[in-house]
Design a protein around this nucleic acid. Structure first.
Lengths: 317, 317
DNA sequence: CTGAAAGCGCTAACAA
DNA sequence: TTGTTAGCGCTTTCAG
């Protein structure tokens, strides 16, 4: 490993001048710069990142935290990593699994291993997570209203209402709902939308409602319940494309087809929706990923990076 | 930020003794240990990772390189990150995009930002990549035979032959092939299997062969070709579940169904195959991910970590 | 068992 | 424009 010290020794120029050339900061005479540059090439000099990190108190690394893997997480990460790279940041992935591990991972912020953290799906209370903002900026995909945690969320209430109204217009009077965990803010918004819709249209039956904490097997279970239901809803709205796709696949295995047996609607616009031809509404996760990065980078570099505007829209099949 | 120095000052004990307690290395009297431990708690001490990294010439970070995202990459990473975490390593994700960027990313090995590198999909020649092994161990998902780069590959030749024989046994005499890039070692193995099969069964027609460099839109294009083909093969084997799924979706949009119009077989055992009920053979990518991690960690920590044996098998739909 | 001291490789304030 | 110097926070000999 060639170091800056070697370059200084070989060229007979001081370490600091070499450092100036290497980092491109400060004035150096053309003659010396050339000599140093030549030596750099000759000795295959590559600056030591670890030393830089210690010295500058930065690692240019963002932690990407999620409880566990789900297909959309991969697509989200794709966008996130690309956007971070644009600003010279790299992304470290962590599966948090439980509250304890999540806290330990957040400690990496305090230890200086991470400059910032993005939480795709959380475990601990926001109060707990919030404490870590003293060590670095935190952003999340989830919906929170806190001054210290950035959340680029969308209110699901009007959107869900829009979906329901659309189905009503198409003639559906029995609509099922497959929702995420009850505690999630988005689920609560959707439940409120259901209540509003119900009040508006007393002729619509909204009795089929399921909740799932994870995406794994949710679609399968929902399909079984649908098959066993006394009054099967002819339209079901899902909280994730993956779950919707699993629902469709399970139904198909049981000899059904969606449609006509059941109209399936979801809200991600993921690769899976495209493949399985599920009707889906794009809620702008790609923009949310970009905005998350921009907020974090903005905080770290003390600048205001413009956020992309999220435009939810139906994806034509 | 509390440092080891603060702890020393507060307790009146030397830095080195504090360090011994913090790192758990070396002998320290019970009394002093208690005093230090108490101070650590009181001052919320968290060791600085950047300083540690510089000092120990290690970051405990593995770089995960891929050209671009594809659904299976996400599932692969899921396993990879979990396995790395078991050994105390964290994973940094990089999209390499072009040869130049890939080289720059490999430079991170030389800069000490990364301890080791795993290459899911490469761009540069192995000769180029090989040079970086002087800076740290390199493993890959791709098939290579080199002493310095670890590759936990599977010979696709016998497996592909097995798939073809199975289809033949089921009565198929016209089999199509959707393959990856011609330059890939796996594709070459599959082409050899096709040749062998052809020689063995002259009554089988193997005229439908497509090659695709990326997974994006490959299935769609293949479907269009299939629809336009003079003699449509009633069975097609794909190099990736995602591509197979896109093929099926495109055909379905055109009014077809697989089966009976076309039997679709693939080789990943991904989440998508499960959702779309595609017949697929598990080639053990999960084990390959684990083995990749184990090799790299083994090299870094100078031990021999047992590799999982890969057992390819049909996945029952 | 403990402390002093050297140093990982780089940066930046300050002086010249 | 350049060099000297003082660290960043931690680990690890080496004496004591």
């Amino acid at each position: 490993m060639t170091t800056i010290y070697d370059l200084a020794r070989v060229t007979g120029i001081s370490k600091s001048t070499v450092s100036r050339v290497v980092s491109g900061q400060g004035y150096v005479s053309a003659a010396k710069r050339q000599r140093i540059l030549a030596a750099m090439r000759e000795l295959h000099y590559i600056p030591n990142q670890r030393a830089k990190n210690l010295r500058r108190q930065r690692t240019n690394t963002i932690g990407f935290l999620l409880r566990e893997y789900f297909p959309l997480a991969g697509e989200f990460m794709d966008v996130f990593v690309h956007e971070a790279a644009r600003y010279g940041f790299t992304v470290n992935v962590y599966f948090t699994q439980n509250a304890e591990t999540e806290r330990q991972t957040l400690d990496l912020l305090a230890s200086g291993a991470l400059d910032a953290v993005f939480i795709l799906t959380r475990i601990n209370d926001w109060d707990v997570i919030s404490r870590y903002t003293q060590f670095g900026p935190i952003a999340t995909w989830q919906r929170v209203d806190r001054p210290d945690i950035y959340s680029n969320y969308l209110d699901h209430y009007p959107l869900y209402l829009k979906i329901l109204e659309q189905l009503y217009r198409e003639g559906h009077r029995q609509i099922g709902h497959v929702l995420s965990d009850r505690s999630s803010a988005n689920t609560q918004a959707r439940l409120r939308a259901i209540a509003t819709f119900q009040a508006r249209h007393p002729d619509a039956a909204m009795t089929f409602v399921c909740h799932f904490a994870t995406q794994q097997n949710a679609g399968k279970t929902a399909a079984k319940r649908w098959l066993a239901a006394a009054a099967r809803p002819h339209a079901v709205v899902f909280f994730a494309d993956y779950v919707a796709a699993e629902f469709v696949a399970t139904l198909r295995r049981a000899g059904g087809a969606c449609p006509p047996d059941c109209t399936v609607v979801s809200t991600d616009n993921s690769a899976i929706a495209k493949l399985t031809a599920i009707r889906t509404m794009d809620l702008g996760f790609r923009s949310q990923a970009c905005n998350g990065v921009r907020y974090l980078v903005g905080q770290l570099t003390d600048q205001e990076l413009a956020a992309e505007t999220i435009r939810p829209h139906w994806v034509k099949a």
